[in-house]
Design a binder for these strands. Structure first.
Length: 568
DNA sequence: GCCGTTTTCGGCCCGACTGTTTTCAGTCG
């Protein structure tokens, strides 16, 4: 898929326009187009072929033509023309905190600085200090920023404990009444760039609170510091924003802190259209004098004419328009989940017995559970074989006689290089649920990998594709596959895609589920290797909720009878 | 450059912090 290429080129255009000093609205339009593409799991080539590019929000005549050009030629003449004025390399300067388009443009125009290395040399040689406006203080700020490693996205599960620690620390400060975690953590994105905290206190204490916050042991450097908003970089490299507001602004402030940016921008636009002013302090009349709503989020949403929007879906993907019509989707919740579809036991590489897993499933109020131990040749998985499958079946039958949770016997087999499976068909016939996954040989082209998975789906016994992209959030990107083609095959062969709830996988991504949930069915599997990991189902639910899934979109909400009927 | 519950033309969210050009531009979220 060429989606990444298109995103890269449009971002370069936006950056260059900023450096050149073009209209901020034109720049914004390109950035919006990039946002839109990033929220799409569909193959941009397919979208181009089917002439649906302009259906993407924020993409009109001009940008759609450039997208077509990039898809066909790998580049667009418009970008070439821009790079004649400013080399594309100059955009790398904008990756430094505190340097935007204007500064980058000045550095290039006045001193010919094109790269971070050039900039370091110009500081070293004293050349930069000769440039008007670049005082000692400003250069010191840039120098400091150069030592920052720009914070990278990290898996949600790794950031949550850090955020909770900060929350606990701040709640321990007498002058703070309450603390909420906002931002992308509250929206439950799979990966997180920085931590947004929102505290409530009394105005006279704001400065003291910020002093305490910015002097925490875990702070590496203070990025910005004011009485209302402070940003610090922790020693572990994560940026933390703290916003303090008075109690009166709790709701409007939390909406602001939670975002997403595009969501809040749309809310403010709607308020403005109704001659109201919305900011983090509240919803006001046009002059900003009379306060209309601010204490709770519900109150603010209601006052601008819509129902409450759950944080998980605040991405400006149409949720605001539905909230205005009071017709938001009834998002799936934990109570709807009747089973886990992907669980390993000590029959293969899991650590828990089937009994232990069954007991934990009972505690979770599940009705049933699908055991899917590995079958294959790789000894690392302590894989099942024909004999073990038969024995395990007997064990399951015994447990089912006394357990309140019904156990189904499934399997997770390998999709081999040629798309065949690591288990003979004669064994698949008697299993309740067959997951096929890629576990080896990742370095294939997108076409080859797509074909490999499609071939596996042609096997009539395969029910689901496990962790479809193979991504591990803290280790490797997934292999590229063409989702448009995979989905077509899913429809043809009635195969389901997995939402792998292992918090380091979260595979497939919520964009995939969002785009295709009405075409195929998805199931959530924790891929648990011990009974404690059954609780990871919550991470899978995050994906489903962010993708606007209702009960009907997720197979785990079916009873075992309904599921087996569907499989038959 | 995009878009339409006043508009196919004229708008485009709002505010905090920084450093400096002492009234504001640049950057960021």
């Amino acid at each position: 898929m060429k989606n990444e290429l298109v995103i890269e080129k449009l971002t370069q255009i936006a950056d260059l326009l900023e450096i050149i000093g073009e209209s901020v609205y034109k720049i914004r339009a390109y950035r919006k187009a990039v946002d839109s593409l990033q929220q799409t799991a569909e193959d941009i080539e397919v979208i181009v072929q089917e002439e649906r590019v302009k259906e993407l929000p924020g993409i009109g005549d001009a940008i759609s033509e450039k997208i077509k050009e990039i898809v066909v030629n790998g580049n667009t003449i418009y970008l070439d023309k821009l790079t004649q004025k400013v080399p594309v390399q100059v955009t790398s300067l904008m990756k430094i905190e505190g340097i935007g388009g204007k500064t980058a443009g000045k550095l290039y125009k006045e001193l010919g600085i094109k790269s971070i290395t050039d900039l370091e040399e110009a500081i070293e040689s004293g050349l930069l200090a000769e440039l008007p406006g670049f005082t000692e203080k400003k250069i010191a700020k840039i120098t400091r920023a150069l030592t920052f490693v720009k914070s990278e996205r990290r898996p949600l599960f790794k950031v949550i404990p850090i955020a909770l620690n900060l929350k606990t620390f701040l709640e321990g400060i007498d002058q703070i009444q309450s603390v909420e975690i906002g931002g992308s953590i509250r929206r439950r994105k799979s990966t997180i760039r920085d931590i947004d905290l929102h505290a409530i206190g009394k105005e006279e204490d704001f400065e003291l609170i910020m002093d305490i916050f910015s002097q925490m042991d875990s702070v590496e450097v203070i990025v910005v510091k004011g009485p209302l908003k402070t940003t610090v970089k922790l020693t572990n490299g994560i940026n933390v924003d703290l916003r303090i507001l008075k109690e009166q602004s709790s709701g409007s402030g939390l909406i602001h802190s939670t975002g997403s940016r595009n969501h809040t921008v749309k809310l403010r636009t709607i308020a403005d259209r109704n001659n109201l002013l919305l900011n983090e302090y509240g919803l006001f009349d046009e002059e900003g004098k009379t306060l209309i709503a601010s204490t709770t989020e519900e109150e603010v949403y209601k006052a601008i004419g819509m129902s409450f929007i759950p944080p998980d879906i605040r991405e400006d993907r149409g949720e605001i328009e539905l909230a205005q019509k009071n017709s938001l989707p009834d998002l799936i919740s934990l109570d709807d989940i009747k089973a886990d579809f992907h669980v390993h036991t000590n029959w293969s590489d899991g650590k828990s017995t089937i009994d232990e897993i069954a007991f934990t499933a009972t505690e979770r109020n599940y009705e049933y559970l699908i055991i899917t131990d590995h079958f294959g040749k790789n000894p690392i998985y302590n894989p099942m074989n024909e004999e073990k499958i038969a024995k395990q079946r007997k064990t399951i039958e015994q447990i089912n006689q006394s357990s309140s949770v019904e156990i189904l016997q499934g399997v997770e087999c390998d999709i081999l290089k040629d798309g065949s499976l690591s288990i003979p068909n004669k064994l698949l016939r008697d299993l309740d649920f067959v997951i096929a996954s890629v576990h080896s040989i990742f370095n294939m082209s997108e076409e080859e990998m797509t074909m490999r998975i499609i071939t596996a789906m042609d096997n009539e016994f395969v029910n689901g594709i496990g962790h479809p992209t193979g991504r591990q959030l803290d280790r490797r990107d997934g292999y590229s596959i063409n989702f448009s083609k995979i989905i077509e095959k899913c429809i043809e062969t009635k195969t389901f895609l997995e939402i792998n709830a292992n918090p380091n996988r979260l595979d497939v991504d919520d964009n995939v589920v969002f785009d295709f949930k009405n075409k195929i069915d998805f199931y959530i599997g924790t891929d648990s290797h011990n009974h404690q990991q059954l609780k990871n189902i919550g991470y899978g639910l995050n994906i489903a909720r962010r993708a606007w899934c209702e009960k009907k979109n997720i197979l785990n909400t079916l009873t075992s009878k309904e599921l087996l009927k569907k499989l038959a």
